[in-house]
């Protein structure tokens, strides 16, 4: 037994010391080179976005706007067009501007094209004082650009997009009237305030946000045609698509949140059966802080009594719940006017 014990102990000691010496810390795993797989959370609205393309072209597998003519691409540009300066197309712009482009030669103020309540260009003044060098949208205002649309300044140099280009006179129009220098006195703060009020009142329908306001202003500054256009080169064949890509929209979850908030404010109705098919569409107009400016309700389905009663109730709840300050401020134009649909049968039971 002694022999076995000594042999065994000796062997264990030898193995353990060998283990302690040789089985030291294994090399730390180097994990730096592994590329992390980026995971994006994609809101549902992104799927429903319209794709940029040409509205009058044939359907193709991939939407593409009308090809541009410029050879050298502008890498920073985001909007397709032949313009020197990149800017988004105006949303409500008509196909062809009501005033011919030659109007650059026509100085009279009275003929100034104002087809919609676009904000006056005054706010640009401030931006114009601090010119930025990049060619992005925000950089559009150039200090030398004339503010009033009547001035003929640099529009002739800017080629127009698409087929219209060919129809235009090749000759550079000569201004018949000496361009008047910009009046700095226009940029009064109270006037600016007025513009903002105008914007707010007009809601999301036209030029609700600063973004659109800027674009509209820059279009005037650039002397572009009222349809706007970008400076990005596009060589693809024109294919069907919306005039404006990346349309913003209230996402499904935000709409659900709005409906849920209003439902929370409702006081239940005890013991009454409500017709399943009763549906109440509410047209709400909201201001920037989420307060209700006005709201209308239109019922469909249900009995006559229900049609008379529930819209009233729901409008009351809508007003009681305000302000809806959880709606994202930077997407105001998407919820300036929202049309949620309520199903009282589900709401009150």
């Amino acid at each position: 037994m002694k022999l076995g014990f000594t042999l065994s102990s000796a062997a264990h000691v030898v193995i353990l010391t060998w283990g302690l010496v040789s089985l030291t810390s294994p090399e730390a795993l180097k994990v730096q080179d592994v590329e992390a797989l980026p995971v994006d959370i994609v809101p549902i609205e992104e799927i429903t976005k319209t794709v940029k393309g040409a509205e009058e072209a044939e359907i193709a597998e991939k939407s593409a706007p009308t090809p541009t003519k410029r050879e050298t691409p502008k890498p920073e540009a985001q909007n397709v067009g032949d313009k020197e300066i990149d800017s988004k197309p105006v949303e409500n712009a008509e196909r062809e501007s009501p005033v011919p482009v030659e109007k650059a030669e026509a100085p009279p103020k009275a003929e100034a094209p104002a087809p919609k309540p676009e904000p006056k260009p005054e706010p640009v003044k401030e931006e114009a004082k601090t010119p930025v060098e990049t060619t992005e949208v925000a950089a559009a205002p150039q200090p030398k650009a004339d503010i009033t649309p009547e001035t003929p300044a640099d529009s002739p140099e800017q080629p127009l997009e698409g087929e219209q280009f060919a129809k235009l006179p090749d000759t550079v129009p000569v201004p018949s009237v000496k361009p008047t220098p910009p009046k700095p006195t226009v940029a009064k703060t109270n006037e600016r305030k007025k513009v903002e009020e105008l914007i707010r009142e007009s809601g999301g329908q036209t030029n609700g946000t600063e973004k659109q306001e800027d674009v509209a202003v820059k279009n005037k500054v650039n002397k572009a045609e009222s349809a706007g256009g970008g400076a990005k080169t596009s060589t693809q064949t024109a294919a069907l698509g919306a005039r404006r890509g990346n349309a913003e929209k209230l996402s499904q979850s935000e709409m659900d949140a709005l409906i849920a908030a209003i439902t929370q404010c409702s006081t239940g109705i005890a013991g009454r059966r409500i017709s399943e098919d009763l549906r109440i569409k509410v047209i709400m107009r909201l201001d920037r802080n989420g307060n209700v400016i006005d709201a209308k309700a239109g019922p469909t389905g249900g009995t006559a009594e229900e049609r008379a009663r529930f819209p009233r109730d729901i409008l009351r709840y809508v007003k009681r719940c305000a302000p809806y300050d959880f709606l994202p401020k930077d997407k105001y134009e998407t919820w300036a006017e929202v049309v949620p649909t309520f199903y009282p049968a589900q709401m009150f039971q």
């Binding site: 037994m1 022999l3 076995g4 014990f5 042999l7 065994s8 264990h12």
Partner: peptide
């Protein structure tokens, strides 16, 4: 466990012999 290992190896050696 280490002691058990030592002792069992001692037994193994002893018994085998």
């Amino acid at each position: 466990l280490l002691l058990a290992s030592i002792w069992s190896w001692a037994i193994i050696v002893d018994k085998s012999l």
